[in-house]
């Protein structure tokens, strides 16, 4: 499994590149699902993975498709390793760790767009520059989508259109991405012709 190919469709879409090891005082590595492979690929590129891991805090949760590579990452022997069951369960710990992270820290995000986006938002809120954050998209392409009408966010959207998990409207996924919200925009598909909803197709897997 390699970097998930993303069609360069829109300008607000995040750019993902393979993770590269960089010098730093603290290495915060956050991954879900197949993102674990991106982490081990990154470590294979440095001649001194042991030194990087000796100052690394690794946080991981299974992907939305069930991929769970916890044991592979735990076995790496990072200074600190944490396994969360889901992204929402991972974020409070990340936010606490960020309070003590100093300039010179390196951030490695790998896995689904939902994981990368939410972790990036938390990091940027603390004032770290975007240049300290690397992201690599691996695994599932399901999307995190904000309903523009009720503002609720539906996780792991696979089909287009889909039903908002908060207000129940049928939404199409607009190719418009907010880094602040770490979400794509969902817009009511039958607003002009209520009830006229085309059949859902699986667009994100």
């Amino acid at each position: 499994m390699t970097l998930t190919p993303v069609e360069p469709t829109i300008k607000s879409r995040p750019v993902y590149a393979p993770l590269e090891p960089r010098p730093g005082h603290l290495h915060l590595i956050i991954a879900d699902g197949e993102g674990a492979d991106a982490v081990t690929d990154m470590l294979a590129k440095t001649s001194d993975a042991g030194q990087l891991l000796a100052s690394a805090h690794l946080m991981y949760c299974p992907g939305p498709n069930g991929t769970d590579l916890t044991e592979r990452l735990r076995a790496l022997g990072a200074l600190q390793f944490f396994r969360a069951p889901t992204i929402p369960a991972l974020l409070p710990r990340l936010k606490r760790v960020l309070v003590d992270a100093h300039m010179g820290s390196q951030f490695y995000l790998a896995g689904t767009e939902g994981l990368c986006g939410q972790a990036e938002t938390a990091i940027m809120q603390t004032g770290f520059p975007a240049s300290a954050i690397q992201k690599e998209h691996r695994g599932s392409t399901v999307r995190r989508v904000q309903c523009v009408h009720c503002k609720g966010i539906t996780e792991n959207v696979a089909t287009d259109p889909f039903q908002c998990s908060h207000c129940g409207l049928s939404l199409f996924v607009r190719d418009h991405y907010s880094r602040r919200l770490a979400a794509f925009q969902g817009v009511n598909i039958d607003a002009e012709d209520p009830g006229d909803v085309p059949p859902s197709v699986v667009r994100f897997k």
């Binding site: 829109i10 300008k11 607000s12 879409r13 904000q146 523009v148 503002k151 607009r174 190719d175 418009h176 991405y177 907010s178 880094r179 602040r180 919200l181 925009q185």
Partner: peptide, 22 residues
């Protein structure tokens, strides 16, 4: 267009949905 969705975006990000012009 939505203030709530676009706030915090860069120039190219908030213009992303406009066709042809890019």
């Amino acid at each position: 267009w939505s203030v709530d969705f676009d706030i915090g975006m860069s120039w190219h990000e908030w213009h992303a949905p406009v066709p042809l012009a890019h």
